[in-house]
Design a protein around this nucleic acid. Structure first.
Lengths: 163, 163
DNA sequence: ATGTTTATGTTATACTATAACGCAGGAGCG
DNA sequence: CGCTCCTGCGTTATAGTATAACATAAACAT
């Protein structure tokens, strides 16, 4: 399994990103969806760092690669990737991050460092279950959930800087 | 305790809103903050329904009450109320909802009905603990968390309509 | 090759949020 | 009373996020 490490831990990132991209291609092929150039490049851009990027940040980089400088170019690619479970939306930041576990069923929880803006997907099965239990008591049917925590990653906690 | 019921259950809403407003005034007095006319009216507007309203929706109603038709009027009041723990921000909707348990320490979970847009604050202590546990394994320090679920409330589940 | 579907290019606009400055009114103090 | 300090509000302007709608083109199936 290519991603047993956290975004916060040092790791061979080229392999990490490459492996995830390969996994993503495989998933798309399985469901008969196409990883077109914009989509592929968009995913690569997000995979280059374990950080969340705004749609306009992504667009900026797409433009540098020759794509049109229009918001829908980025939004469409991001929306597609999100639908396919390859990208997650970080609502707290109005931003997007590549999924590190494509294909694995997961209602992910995100840990967002407010200092270095790194984003990790935490193992969140227990969180999801607790939320489901809370919803059950109110007879609410959950369809999608957003679980995000803002704080300090291990590195930035150590540095102990103020914001 | 005025709010042992859920937003999804029928209840005496006038009492519910009035009680929460009184509680809010009390909290503010305790910490030496002022519930000015805009702030009071903003809170009332949010208390009128167990739903999340966008800042511009709030503004529209404030304007109807004679306040200036400028975004900062609404945003300032909402920001103040949020800082005081009297209003919560619903990230998923870019909207705001009145807190139903002012003063009680809580990292709330929100259940948002995608059909009728009702928003309930669910008991979420267990969810928070699970999230904290997940963060601990990655040595991440949580400062603020966002827990939101989108789905169907009991009423709309019954109606079983498509979106 | 032709029709169908899917994806992209392009223009325009809607929606969300904040910066920055100036004025008004109350609070504390001589 | 007059001063000034502080808070909150009015106001203008603009920044940042997201989508609607229609035109063009590429890919796919037959």
């Amino acid at each position: 399994m290519p991603h047993d490490h956290s975004a916060f831990a040092p790791h061979d990132h080229a392999a990490c990103a490459g492996g995830t991209l390969a996994l993503a291609e495989q998933r798309l092929a399985e469901v008969g969806q196409r990883l077109t150039p914009v989509r592929r490049r968009t995913l690569q851009i997000l995979l280059e760092s374990h950080r969340a990027l705004g749609a306009y940040d992504v667009l900026e980089r797409l433009v540098a690669d020759g794509f049109a400088n229009q918001p829908p170019v980025a939004y469409r690619a991001l929306e597609f990737l999100e639908e396919q479970g390859l990208v997650h939306r970080i609502r707290r930041l109005n931003a997007f991050a590549a999924c590190m576990h494509p294909g694995e069923a997961h209602a992910p929880a995100f840990l967002i460092c407010r200092t270095c803006h790194a984003v990790a997907e935490a193992p969140a099965a227990a969180v999801g279950e607790a939320l489901q239990a809370a919803a059950d008591t109110l007879h609410f049917t959950i369809e999608r959930s957003t679980i995000e925590a803002l704080g300090l990653c291990p590195t930035c906690t150590g540095a102990a800087h103020a914001d």
